[in-house]
Nucleic acid binder design. Structure first.
Length: 201
DNA sequence: AACGAAGTCAACCGCTAATTT
DNA sequence: GAAATTAGCGGTTGACTTCGT
């Protein structure tokens, strides 16, 4: 697959490109025993000539248990659309609301399916969307949010009564895609979304 | 059947945030 | 508190597949 170290070079050349079944197996086995942390160590100890980042990505997107692949249902699609409207290109947050789905998959799905779909349905409204989700929304928004007491990816506190995305989106006890949890999205969309967004900026 | 265009998606890259030393 | 290391994110790329001519 990827170029291997021929032994003559001192510098270790990492494998790149598609993962082989053997690599997958090594990674899965290692994580099963030792857990998924310290990816650099995982890569070395699992005997993978890969960087930690690559291992992490592979695990999260493919090897992790309970991963759903393909066949995104109408309900899921609807949820993605709604969440994207709310959150912009914050794929990991969106993915967090879709059990078994990964940010990468949702991002790809968005770029290849939904983006066009939306442009077809309402080509003019793209400007509105841009206002909500500007070109570099993820970092910008997360900075705003972070500084206001919302820690993304960790336990945020909501001491000032500010809106806490994580808390709000924490439906671990209620969100099963069976019901798809669309009610909460609907509820939220009923709120004065614009005023909330303006307040945040 | 052959070929190019368009679509899809796995993986990489660069960056920031969070954590550890 | 500073520096180094690790984790995580979103954007982008490129290989592969499918579709249309």
């Amino acid at each position: 697959m990827a170029p291997k170290n021929d032994g003559s070079a001192k510098k270790v050349v990492m494998n790149k490109g598609a993962w082989t079944a053997e690599e997958d197996q090594k990674l899965s086995q290692y994580i099963e025993i030792h857990g998924a942390k310290r990816w650099k160590t995982v890569a070395v100890k699992a005997g993978l000539n890969r960087c930690g980042k690559s291992c992490r990505l592979r695990w999260l997107n493919y090897l992790r248990p309970n991963i759903k692949r393909g066949n995104i249902s109408d309900a899921e699609e609807d949820l993605i659309l709604r969440l994207h409207k709310l959150l912009g290109n914050r794929w990991s947050l969106i993915a967090g609301r879709l059990p078994g789905r990964t940010d990468n998959e949702i991002k790809n799905y968005w770029n290849s399916h939904l983006c066009k779909k939306i442009n077809k349905e309402k080509p003019i409204e793209t400007s509105t969307e841009k206002e909500i989700a500007p070109e570099k929304p993820s970092r910008v928004i997360s900075h705003h949010v972070d500084t206001e007491g919302v820690k993304l990816g960790s336990t945020g506190n909501n001491s000032e009564g500010n809106f806490d995305v994580n808390e709000f989106l924490d439906f671990t006890s209620t969100t099963e895609l069976g019901s798809c949890g669309l009610e909460w999205v609907n509820k939220f969309l009923e709120l004065d979304e614009d005023s909330w967004l303006i307040e945040k900026s």
